[in-house]
Design a binder for these strands. Sequence first.
RNA 1: GGUCCUAUGGUCAAGUGGUUAAGACGCCACCCUCUCACGGUGGAAUCAAGGGUUCGAUUCCCUUUAGGACUACCA
Length: 543
Amino acid sequence: MDYKKLADLLFPDNKFTVEEIEKKYPKRKLEKNAYVTRFAPSPTGYMHLGGFFQALIDYNLAKRSGGVFYLRIEDTDQKREIAGASAIILNILTSYGFLPDEYQLKGGVTVGDYGPYYQSERKEIYKAYAKKLVSEGKAFPCFCRKTEGLSDVKEKREKKFAVGINEDKDPCRNLTLEQIETNLKEGKTFAIRLKSKGDGVRKIKFHDGAKGEVEILENSMDAVLLKNDMMPTYNFAHPVDDTLMGTNVVVRGEEWLPSYPLHAEIFEALGFEQPKYIHSPLIYKLNEQGNKNKISKRKHPEADMRYFDKEGYDKQAVVEYLMNLINSNFENWRRVNPDADIMEFPFDGFKITANTPIFDFVKLNDVSKEIISHYSAEKCYEELLLWARENSLENVDYLVKDKDYVTKVLNIDREKPKPRKDIYKWSMFFDVFDYMFSAPAKFEVEEENKKDFEEVLKTYKKYIDLSSKEKWFENIKKMAAELGYATDNSDFKKNPEKYKGNVAKVCEYIRVAVTGRKNSPDLYEIMILLGEKQVLERLAQFA
RNA sequence: GGUCCUAUGGUCAAGUGGUUAAGACGCCACCCUCUCACGGUGGAAUCAAGGGUUCGAUUCCCUUUAGGACUACCA
C-alpha cells in the first residue's frame, strides 16, 4: 500500500503541513519546574463543580510554579455546543479570582499566543496530523456507518460483552487502495482511525500524579481520530493540542484513566512526548441507598457553580472547602494561619487523595460560617448588597436606602472576639433577621406558661430601660425577683422548686415577644436598634 | 462480560511494619451564660472480610466483598 498516495487522496486540500504548524507553536520559554496546565471543558453552558475542582488544581499548580494556566474550549462535538459557554466559564473563573493567562472569547478577544483556544477553530491542525499518520501507515480511513445514538452503541457493546473480546480492530483497516478510491468517488465520507498495534495482552505502566503507579492493559482499539465531519475526537485532540500548546501536566477527571493507554499510543504514533497526568477524583453525592453517585446537574443543583452565587455562598468558603478536599491538611494550615492568603498554603497537586470525596454541605456551611463571622459589618453589607443585586432585586432598594440600619443589624454580636455564626450564605440574611425589619408572627406560647408569660410582659412595660445594658439587665433582674424568679443561677439549680423559673425564663418570654423566636443574638442590642416604642408595641400584642 | 480505580469513625481524612490510630465537620454531655449561639472541657464512633509474609500487621502481598469509572465518529 502506498500510504503517501492514500494520504493525498484522503486529504487533497489540507491548508498546512505539520512542519508549518509546529513553527507556529514554539516551545514555551519557562523555568524548568514551571507547570503549564489547562482547563479544558466542553461547552455545556455551565461550569461543573467537578470541573471547577480540577481548574483549582490547575491554577494552583501553574501559578505557584511560575507557569501558565490556560482555558481551552473543547467544542468538537457540535451537537452539544451551547452559545456563550466560554463567557460563562470565564466569568466564574474570574469571579473566584482564577483568571486564566490565556483564553479566547468566541467572536471576541484572544489572549495568548497558542490559540485558537477553541478546538473547532483548529480543524486544519488536526487534519495535518491525521494526514501525517495516514502517510506513515499509522492510521486509515473508515467508511463504516456512523453510530448514531446511544442505543446503537449499547447494542454493539452487549455483543462485545457476550464474546468477551477486548480487541477492537476495525474491518476497514484491510481496505485496498482501489476500494478506498471507489468509495471516495462514490462520495462516501470517512473517519480516520488509529491502526492500533496492541494485542490486548501486553501491559503498560505509568505514573499518575494522584493514583501512583498504574499498570494497565495497552490499547488495542482502532479508535477514531477524526470523525466524519473531520472534527477530532477528544482522544486525538488531547495529544495534538496539549503538545502544541505546551501543557506539561494534564489534570483531568479519573474517568479518563482507562483511556490512558489509547492516548499513550496516539502520542507515540505522533512522535510526541507525553505530559504528566493527574487523574483527580470525581466529586460524589450519597443517594438514598447510601451509594455514591457522580455529582450531576440533574440531581444536584450544586453541580452548577452558579448555584453558589445564587445562594449567596461566600466564594472564599467554596474555595477553601474544595482546597480541603484536594489537600486535607489545608484546614490545619488555615487554623494556624487564619489570615494568610491561600497562595501561601503549601499546596501539593500531586498529593491529592486517591479516594472519591463526597460533597458535604454541612462542612461547607461550617467553613462559610467561620469565614463570614470574621467579616466586618461593612464587608457583610457590601457582600449582601452584591448578592441582592444579582439574586434578590426586591430587597436592593431597601438595602441601599437603609444602609445604616442594615449595617447595624449586621453588626449585632459581630466584630467581637467570639462572633456569632448565624449566617453561612447571604440568602439567609432576611430569614435570620426578619424580626429586625417587621413585627414577627405572633409566637404561640405553651399553654401552661401562658399566664406567666403574659404577666412578665405586662410587668416589663414598667421596667423597660434601654439607657445602658447594665441598667437594662438590672431592671430585668429586679422584675424577675419580684415575680418570683431566681436571679442567681446556681441557687436556682440547687432549689428549683423555690422559683417559677430563673431570669433566663423571663428573658425568653421577652425575647419571644420581641423577635418571635426563642433564639436570637443579644437581646439588648436588638431592642436598642428596634427602639423602645417598637419594642413596647410588640409587647402589647401579648399583654 | 472485560479493563481499571478506591477502601481508616456518619462525612472529609492524617498516619505508621511496633502509635493511647492525629485533626476538622456532625452528634452527645457538662461548663460559661439573659436565650440561642460562640467559646471551653469531655465523650461515643474508624483501620471492610478472609488468607498469607513477618517476632509483630491498619500499614506489604493475594483473594473476597463493597462502591465507583470506562468499555461512542460524547467529552
